[in-house]
């Protein structure tokens, strides 16, 4: 646990002391801000049907940022260490590959969660003017964190496979995009069993439900096991590199 904590704090420092993180935060807040402004526009205009619950539109739209955000946040995690060779120093320390992966992943997740923290201001801005049902807001954030956790794990795995950050980002985007596409197929499939299986992995419908205030344990189980699976793959990829 100590080893995980040491890796976690080291990695977290790397995130917060990197000006690049603030560039990401700047663009993230700008894009989510545009989404929110769009929402405010529909809540102010009486001719437009308001989304219900109001903030569901914000979650349903801004989660699409994750296609790029998750791979960008994780591309550096392991591939940088592989490229600079610092991974060998790390491996000689009394720490296992799994602990390295866990510490780094948790740091990326913490940074990811902190990106969303300022967006609470949006909900507070609406609450100042109208009554807000906080349950769906909390569920929306839970969905954003759950889906983010899964996609960051995929990004971590992509980063463990290559020394190049660019390649890691591209592989990450490709894997995440594949998952997005699977969801789109659900609409066109008519076979009941297949439809049900695709609905299970369809992140589009997951965020839709979370944003409306429905928390389904199936989604949480999927994210939890998905995170463990991809982190396991990242660990094995790292072990494999060690033996080469």
């Amino acid at each position: 646990m100590k080893a995980v904590w040491a890796t976690y704090t080291r990695e977290l420092r790397a995130y917060y002391f990197s000006p690049l993180a603030y560039v990401v935060l700047f663009f993230f807040l700008f894009v989510t801000g545009v989404v929110f402004i769009n929402l405010v526009g529909s809540l102010v205009d009486p001719r437009v049907m308001a989304p219900d619950p109001a903030l569901s539109y914000f979650f349903r739209s801004s989660w699409l940022l994750l296609i790029l955000l998750a791979p960008v946040l994780t591309m550096r995690l392991i591939s940088e260490e592989l490229k600079s060779g610092s991974i060998e120093i790390l491996m000689t320390a009394p720490i296992t590959e799994a602990q390295v992966v866990a510490g780094k992943y948790l740091a990326s997740f913490t940074f990811y969660a902190s990106l969303w923290l300022p967006t609470l201001v949006y909900a507070l801005l609406i609450a100042q003017q109208s009554e807000v049902d906080w349950g769906p807001v909390a569920a929306g954030y839970l969905g954003i964190l759950g889906i983010g956790a899964l996609l960051l794990a995929i990004g971590t795995f992509a980063s463990s496979m290559t020394r190049s950050q660019l390649v890691a980002a591209m592989v990450g985007v490709a894997l995440v995009f594949l998952l997005f596409l699977v969801g789109l197929f659900e609409e066109s499939v008519t076979h009941e069993g297949m439809k049900e299986a695709l609905a299970y992995v369809n992140l589009w419908s997951h965020i839709d439900e979370f944003s409306r205030g429905i928390v389904d344990t199936r989604h949480l189980a999927y994210y939890g096991t998905g995170v463990l699976f991809f982190l396991f793959l990242a660990t094995r990829a790292l072990e494999d590199k060690k033996w080469r």
């Binding site: 619950p53 049902d133 906080w134 349950g135 769906p136 909390a138 569920a139 299970y200 409306r212 205030g213 429905i214 928390v215 389904d216 344990t217 199936r218 189980a221 999927y222 096991t225 998905g226 463990l228 699976f229 396991f232 793959l233």
Partner: peptide
């Protein structure tokens, strides 16, 4: 691990619960 992933997800799907967090 992939098999375990599938088994856990199957069980999660079979014994699931949906919580309603809406105020009303």
């Amino acid at each position: 691990v992939a098999a375990l992933f599938l088994i856990f997800n199957y069980l999660g799907w079979k014994y699931h619960h949906r919580f309603d967090w809406t105020g009303g």
